[in-house]
Simulated assay, not measured.
Amino acid sequence: MRARLLPLVAASAVGLLALTGCVANATDTGSTGAALTVDSSADACTLSADEAPSGNVSFAVTNSGDQVTEFYLLAEDGLRIVGEVENIGPGLSRDLVVQLKPGHYVTTCKPGMVGAGMDQKAFTVTDSGDDVVIDADLDAQVALANTNYAAYVRDQIAQLLTGTQAFADAYLAGDDDTARALYAPTRAHWERVETVAESFGDLDPQLDLREADLEEGQDWTGWHAIEKDLWPAEAEAGFAAYTPDQRQDLSRLLVEDTTTLNDKVQDLDFTLSQQTNGAIGLLDEVATGKVTGEEEFWSHTDLWDFQANIDGATVLYAGVRDILLEEDADLAAELDTEFAELQALLDAQRVGDGFTLYTELTPAEIKAFADQVNALGEPLNQLTATLVL
């Protein structure tokens, strides 16, 4: 987090952007096209088929479990929401109708409507030979993009809350190895929607303030206060480990503030300018904190945050890309290229499920990241003016 707050005016696999467009999420199952069934049980998300031809695809989702459930059709990266149905009670059914281009997708169900979803499966849309014409009504495309992004934000914050509780439990129990392992992947949910989270006033500094940005007399709480305690070897000489009471207070506040954030995002609405400026804001977060190594001062997990910010920016861009193609195809092509080149640099630093620590990067690698962030920033800064003005 930076000292100044951004107002709310604001996919890893960029190649996917050309395969998915704005879709029609409706309940009219009278549309011609493929018709599939989905059974959401307590422990499985079972589809009648794992592929369908491009065009209109309908999913009849039945809840055979004992909890209220949701069904999601996601882009190939498992992040961007292409279509969803929520609040399906036990024994009930709901329909999802989407208009899909050829490509690869992911399906998942979420019993209890919390967490990351379970039984994720690959879903393929083959080429039917017919052109898939996405809704030509610009207002409809914008409305759908706004709706899908709001669903994405709710999902990321819900996953943040689940992960935060597990992290806080481990930290409070003194299981520091588990807490350290959970730190970066849990924070990724925050970083993907950071510009939204920053819009809620005091919640942002309470959750994400760095020690370097503390003002005189300000209480220090949140992720980075705990980070310093979990990586004491990286702290300054004379640092004293927190007492059990301090750990309890920090853990409690972290969960309470994240719960408040989760409550606040439930009724969010977005505009097109908020989406485009949100993508720009996330890249700004990379440029001012992650690429400099200032964000994760003790854990050095800055590349995890870097990737999450780019995930969020990619999701925002993907949501408006079909609209941009109609307005400025050359700008869309340039953004596709620059996103892909930045992702390639990140992929080169992958180690297992994570990344190289920031302190292990060479000066040349850091410069390459900074240069590519700047290269992406130039066309990305044109997005709002192209689509909104």
Rank of each mutant, 00 (worst) to 15 (best):
G289W: 07
A181W: 12
W298Q: 02
G293N: 07
T386V: 07
A168C: 10
Y358I: 01
D50V: 03
I310N: 02
F200Q: 00
N309I: 06
T243Q: 08
I323D: 11
A136R: 10
R210F: 00
D219C: 05
T162N: 07
S40H: 03
L282H: 10
F123N: 07
L73W: 00
Q206G: 11
D130G: 00
Q99A: 12
E215P: 15
D213W: 02
Q156W: 10
V142D: 05
G65A: 05
P232V: 13
V9Q: 14
Y105E: 06
Y105W: 08
T356F: 11
V14G: 03
T258W: 09
G55E: 09
A241C: 04
G354K: 00
K110W: 12
A375K: 02
A212K: 12
P7T: 12
G238I: 00
E285H: 09
M113K: 08
D66Q: 11
A375M: 01
E86A: 08
Q99F: 13
E256L: 05
W304V: 08
A348P: 00
T32V: 11
L268F: 02
L172A: 04
R192V: 15
T32F: 07
Y171H: 11
D330N: 11
D269Y: 05
D139F: 10
D127M: 14
P232S: 02
G222F: 14
L383A: 00
E211L: 10
M1H: 06
A233G: 09
A340M: 13
F239W: 10
L209V: 07
L8I: 09
P53V: 06
P102N: 06
G238R: 05
A287L: 02
Q218V: 06
E326S: 14
Q159H: 08
V351Q: 11
A329D: 05
W231R: 12
G163L: 14
G163T: 11
T384W: 01
E215W: 06
D229C: 04
E227P: 13
D263Y: 12
K264I: 08
T46E: 14
I134N: 08
S41N: 13
A181M: 12
L36S: 07
A166N: 15
Y72F: 09
S41R: 11
D39L: 06
L5D: 02
L253Y: 11
D347F: 12
G377E: 07
K264C: 05
V142F: 09
W298N: 01
K121G: 07
T359R: 14
L383W: 02
